[in-house]
Amino acid sequence: MAEEIIEQEQEQVAQHFSLPDTNNEEGGEHSFLGASFGKSMMWLFLLSDAFTFTGLLLGYGAIRVKSEWWPDPNLVFNSMPFLHGKDVPLGFVTIMTTILILSSVFIVRAVQEGHRMNRKGVAIWLIWGIIGGLAFLGCQAWEWSHLIHSGMRPFYNVYYAGADGQTLKLAAAEIANHPASPGPSMFAGSFFGITGFHGLHVTIGVILNTVALIQTLLGTYHKRGHYEMVEKFGLYWHFVDLVWVFVFLFFYLI
């Protein structure tokens, strides 16, 4: 008797959890958005996250438009690791951008292999994607520490306006004599704040991709019959890439 009830419950639970395509006219493939609810939830989440990042970037934009003078990014972001003292404007950040875009491509490849149920292919491309993410984070860490070493803080900017509006840099030894920020402090504040917030997203993305990799290697998705989880995490990862494209434009190019 008890077993029967359990069986019944099992059946009901199973029915409950296989809902979208069995009981719903508009569930599954025929749904309004043409995507399973997991994927549509991820899309909608990214939409809302896009609003968050727009809010942040607009905070930066409104302040930048309001300011009289802004340091020239070509003179601020001009150093490269291993090329000490050499002047390479925008060199390093272009490498960072390339790394992140390539890592995004690798994840696309993982998703495509997922559609063919090619477990090994998914794993390999995921590993490449994760390496790309970690490399990007490493680059960002190097860039941050370089700026911090030269005296930049979220509330302190060593790049100030010369007499003709050219960008000058306060020497490290002089910093002690200038308690107030010599240049517009929001240049540093918005840079650290927004690239930091983006970096947090990258970190989360790397963690998600690692979870996907572990589950791929364990065969969880293979048993499930589809690699939709890789696709969902992938969407998130591309979104991180998408945000970076705009951060790159607004902080480094313009």
């Binding site: 968050t52 905070g59 302040i63 509330f155 540093a188 704040g193």
Partner: peptide, 23 residues
């Protein structure tokens, strides 16, 4: 659509309070 923007404004406020930025 609107809560994320509050989130952005709260994050910037937290930066101002914690990191002494001046958004």
């Amino acid at each position: 659509l609107s809560f994320p923007v509050l989130f952005a404004s709260v994050v910037l406020l937290i930066f101002d309070r914690g990191l002494h930025t001046s958004f």
